[in-house]
Design a protein around this nucleic acid. Structure first.
Lengths: 156, 156
DNA sequence: CCACCACGTATCATTGATAGTTACATGATG
DNA sequence: CATCATGTAACTATCAATGATACGTGGTGG
């Protein structure tokens, strides 16, 4: 099944933004994500509404982080994206009155609910600063890796 | 995202089959699942190949359970369906060389891998007999519930 | 032995979500 | 005030599950 990559993409972008001086335009971001500017604006809109980023129009405008990475968890971004369904498999409701179907869905539903709770707890425990620190470790480990699009090592 | 309901459906069907005398035709099963016979054959094909059910052609033919419910776990059925992706959200690979993307995907990937392991372990620990027992409990609790399609209380 | 029944399977249409695109309006900057 | 950037509406593209049609194949029973 087709997988939703918005969470991954937004985390990617936010970390880049934190290492970036000044606003990043949707155009620049879209190149990083190999997509196009409208998709970026659409997806970032949710984060803006929750106050994680700010957008500025006109010359020199673009997107700016509005909170430090230490204050943003993966769970926050997941919620900002509208809490999309995490699971690709789910219960059937072909015959809601059927007791067999109810028994099956109760078992599956409980298993998925527990897995979701675990996943969300994990998301809530990881901040973007943690991911940025992992990036820094990878960067140091490789010395001077190639830059497919602009990375911003810890300098600025 | 659209959710794969095949696992739920197959569990539903197998339990009904265990309470059924003689083969159940794809036509009968399709009515239980509010779908059509071809979808049933397509989905059951995987279970047949793994030996959980048998199919018989001709007059009086249809589908028959080939193992007791105690010998079949939810995990078995999941595998028989081709182990479809469990998650609806996943990593982006827009820029595989980007160290930021790698850090993001490592964190997300680990979280999802752990959740998947938990889910599969749970699936492996539940047999269809457990679900059937839950059905029996629900049946007894309600006395004589309505039958939207044929249920088979513990008699035969 | 042959008519019928049920599975087996190829092929195409439908669905529902993200993702991509085009077009145009709005606001800010220099 | 021309230009740049976001905001958004309205499409189209894509992908996998699902649904539907058609036809082939093998058993069964009359």
């Amino acid at each position: 099944m087709r997988r939703d990559s918005r969470l991954s993409r937004m985390l990617h972008v936010l970390i880049h933004m934190s290492r970036h001086n000044g606003p990043a335009t949707s155009e620049q971001i879209s190149r990083m994500l190999a997509t196009n500017p409208v998709v970026v604006r659409r997806t970032m809109a949710g984060l803006r509404d929750k106050g994680y980023v700010r957008s500025e129009k006109g010359h020199g405008g673009g997107w700016v982080l509005d909170l430090p990475l230490t204050e943003i968890t993966l769970l926050d971004i997941h919620k900002a994206l509208g809490e999309p369904t995490l699971f690709a498999v789910g219960p059937a409701s072909d015959n809601p009155d059927c007791l067999v179907e109810q028994a099956v869905n109760a078992a599956l539903g409980q298993a998925f609910a527990d897995a979701e709770a675990q996943l969300l707890a994990r998301f809530g425990a990881v901040t973007l600063a943690d991911l940025a620190a992992d990036f820094d470790a990878r960067y140091r480990a490789l010395g001077s890796p190639p830059w497919p699009h602009e990375h911003y090592p810890a300098e600025d």
